[in-house]
Amino acid sequence: MDDETILEAFDPEIAKFVEVLLKNGNVGVFGGSIRVLEPKTGQYIISQKGCCDRFRVQVPFAGSTLTWQVIFNSVFPENPPDFMFGPQERTFIPELENVKSLVNWDASNRDCLLVVIKELIHLYKEFQENLLRNYSRMQFEYTSLLELDTGKFNDVELLLARKGVRDTSVNFLIKLPVDFSEIPEFLTKDNPGEDLAVLLVSFQNVESNKALPQLYLSPRVEHALGGSASLRIPAFPTGGCLMDYVPNVCELLENMVDQLVKGYQKRSEYIAAFLSHFGRSVLEYDVESFSKISIMFEMQDFYFTMHITLPAYFPRDQPEFMFQSIYHTGTHSKPYTAIVKDYPYSPRWSGNEMAERARIYLNEYIPEFKRASVSQIRVR
């Protein structure tokens, strides 16, 4: 059921609250969306549309989903709703006076239901913190993490979930305070939203010294860092602690961002150096990401092009040189090419030195490439 169909099912005076949930209901450490499900009515006479006054909401919390029922009365739609919590929250019974936004319900404010849900989430977090006090091992994990670096890792959601008669698993969802603001804009411009990184650490039970960690990134950050395949975090060590593990993962991510930013700066320097050394011969180059440059060369009446591709994590990773003849064709009648990756290179060189070393290498390599292109034998 799409959002428009859902809204049509509700009484108009209630639909305005639901619409805010659907459009702006991002909550929690990772900013997940609130989902609205199963619109129903408490009326005896049911029309086709516009009569529903109760529904379920799914709220993301600590790597899991809370399912609560919201109950309005379409006869008195201006009245505040009632809430029924799920079986996992059967002991979560907040005092009404603690839900200030519900006590001071203002039906003229379209955001009032969202405000109530956010306040209930905050109270639910406090409820989970109180439950954790019964388990000394997990309480230590939580408090020691919060005390690190004057509250650097204090944006945490935790959830104790009963798995059976005896077992209770524990989730910690931790926002990693990584600064993504220096990531080049071209890597994030096509992915709207916030830049976020959160770490979910799941303990099998309250006494376990084993945990499963999972890193979640917002689409902008994941795209900028090269996709999920590039993001491998270390396993949680047996007997390890959150206070040691979480800063390590945070530092790993910070280093990746730092390499990405410095790589962009070094690619810019590299392209500028090649423009300086081979300016009149340059055919084109990437002015946004500085990831490619193409140059036309002539040596002893032999003309060819050189295409240089710079990797995202340059200068750690070496650029690729592709030489292409403008005369000869290789397999499938395509221009004859040769790809070179074993030329002299050091990530510690300046862009200017890299360009100068490339010039020296060209003088040595071109005769070999010319002979190979003429004879149609690939080299290197």
Score class of each variant (00 low, 15 high):
222 E>W: 01
273 A>N: 06
80 P>D: 13
274 F>K: 04
120 L>P: 01
88 Q>P: 10
232 R>H: 11
88 Q>L: 13
26 N>F: 14
180 F>G: 00
362 L>N: 08
276 S>H: 09
98 N>D: 15
142 Y>N: 01
162 R>L: 13
12 P>E: 05
282 V>F: 00
85 F>V: 03
187 L>C: 08
161 A>N: 12
66 L>D: 03
351 G>C: 04
216 Y>G: 10
4 E>T: 15
45 I>Y: 11
38 E>F: 14
122 H>R: 15
299 M>G: 01
76 F>P: 02
146 L>N: 08
36 V>R: 01
154 N>P: 01
38 E>I: 07
193 G>L: 07
6 I>D: 03
156 V>N: 00
61 F>W: 03
281 S>W: 00
352 N>H: 09
176 L>Q: 12
210 K>Y: 06
299 M>L: 10
303 Y>S: 11
98 N>Y: 10
277 H>I: 13
53 D>R: 02
319 P>N: 05
306 M>C: 15
279 G>A: 08
35 R>Q: 15
317 D>N: 15
224 A>W: 02
166 R>E: 14
236 F>M: 05
2 D>W: 03
377 I>G: 04
295 I>L: 10
364 E>D: 11
133 R>Y: 14
11 D>R: 08
343 Y>W: 12
36 V>Y: 00
297 F>D: 09
336 Y>N: 07
331 T>K: 10
40 K>P: 00
200 L>H: 02
250 C>N: 13
380 R>W: 09
49 K>W: 12
123 L>Q: 04
70 V>I: 15
344 P>G: 06
130 N>Q: 14
345 Y>S: 07
254 E>Y: 07
119 E>K: 04
150 T>F: 10
24 N>W: 11
273 A>W: 00
283 L>H: 06
341 K>P: 08
145 L>D: 00
158 L>W: 00
138 M>S: 05
